[in-house]
Each structure stands twice: as C-alpha cells, then as structure tokens.
Amino acid sequence: MIKAYSTDYRTRLCEFFSKIIETHKAYISHGELQMGVALDSNELAPDYQEAWLKYLDRQVANPDNTLLLYLDEEEITGFILFGITEDGAAPYGQVFDLSVDPAYRGKHIGQELLQRATTSFRERGVKDCYLESGVNNHSAHRFFEHHGFQQVSDIFRLKL
C-alpha cells in the first residue's frame, strides 16, 4: 500500500534508508556527498543518519516535494521522494530518492512509486523528469532505463 509520509514514520524511514545504504554503497551519488551523508563514493560519514534526517526534514518541508512510502502492513518496503523545481527554462520534475527493500524487489513496488511521481508531474504540466544515481548502481540504471529514462550527463567531483 502506498501512503503519504508523515513524521510518525521519520525514525523508521531513517532506519530503512540506513539498511539500504549500508548494504548497498553503490546507492551513494553526488547527492549523498553534498548532503554530508557520505565522505566518498564508498564511505558513509560517521554521522550520516543525522545528516540524512536533516536532508529529509528540509525536503518534506518544501511544499513542491512529495514523499510516498510503500508499506507492507506497517513495514516500510520502499519510498520515493520527488518534487518540481522551477529554476530551469521550464519547471521540471526531480526524483530525489527511490529505494525498495531488496527482499521486495521484483514485485513492482519501484514501478508503482515511480509511476505515482511521473503521473503527478504530468498532471502538473511538467514535461521533463531528472534523477541522479550512483555511478556503480547498475541495477538502478537498468530499472530507470527500462522505464524510459536516458542518461544525459556524468557528474565529476574535485576534492579540494
């Protein structure tokens, strides 16, 4: 069942995210580096959960963003965080995070969550949707390509 996020789920969502990122470092992209969740593409920050909760709180405070949870009973098995950004030539959609518990993959949970986001974008007149993914997150890349996404750039970092 898909349900809108409420702060009642804040701690459980952080635990879910932690389980995913600790066991699948390929999830780390430049977003996690910029947020302070990760120190490098394969290393989480010591206080990564606190950094992620700050990020979460900022994102859900933005009225242009939506966070949906996929629940099995009351257990979080997936989530998607998405929103509309208006700093381009035209408003565009962004999928900030999409994750499904590995034990629940192949059950169309990610597809349902992604479909909710893209339907929301279309209903609001948005023509393009972007997302980022860790450079080595090949299973996610295949999933997104299967759903019509095409790679349009690479992101590089210089550590100063």
Rank of each mutant, 00 (worst) to 15 (best):
K159A: 14
L13T: 00
K19Y: 03
E74T: 13
D8M: 11
E145Y: 07
E112K: 12
A89R: 13
T11D: 14
E50I: 02
D47K: 03
G110H: 03
D97M: 08
T77H: 15
F156L: 14
G93Q: 02
I80R: 01
P91C: 07
K54G: 05
T7S: 15
A4Y: 13
V126C: 04
K107M: 13
V37F: 05
G148D: 05
M1N: 13
Y92G: 03
W52D: 02
P46F: 08
T77S: 15
Q34D: 14
I20N: 03
S18L: 07
A89T: 12
Q151R: 13
E74I: 10
T119M: 04
H146G: 14
E73R: 07
D101G: 04
S41I: 11
S99D: 15
V60I: 12
K25P: 14
E86M: 14
C129K: 02
I84N: 04
L114E: 05
H138G: 10
V135L: 12
Y104L: 06
K159H: 13
S6G: 11
C129I: 09
H147A: 06
C14L: 10
A117R: 01
D47Y: 02
D64F: 05
Q115P: 10
D128S: 13
L114R: 01
L114G: 04
G31Q: 05
A89I: 12
Y9D: 05
H138K: 12
K54A: 06
V126S: 02
G31M: 07
F96W: 11
T23M: 11
N137Y: 06
L33P: 06
A90K: 09
R157E: 11
Y104S: 10
V126H: 01
G134W: 00
D64N: 09
G110R: 01
D97Y: 08
E112C: 09
L81D: 05
Q151Y: 03
D72P: 06
I80F: 01
E32N: 03
L160K: 05
H147G: 08
Q34G: 11
R157S: 12
R12W: 06
D128V: 11
R142E: 08
A4T: 14
L13I: 01
L160A: 09
A4H: 14
D8V: 13
Q59I: 00
R157K: 11
Y5N: 03
Y27W: 08
E73I: 07
P91H: 03
D154L: 15
Q150V: 15
V126M: 04
R157P: 06
L160S: 09
I109E: 04
M1D: 13
G83L: 00
K54F: 00
G93S: 05
E74R: 09
T85S: 10
K107F: 10
G31F: 06
Q115I: 14
D154W: 13
L69Q: 01
E132I: 11
P46Q: 11
E74A: 11
Q150Y: 10
E32P: 02
F79H: 07
H146C: 10
E73V: 09
E73L: 09
F144R: 08
Y48L: 03
G134N: 03
L114T: 05
V95Q: 01
F17R: 06
T119Q: 06
A90E: 12
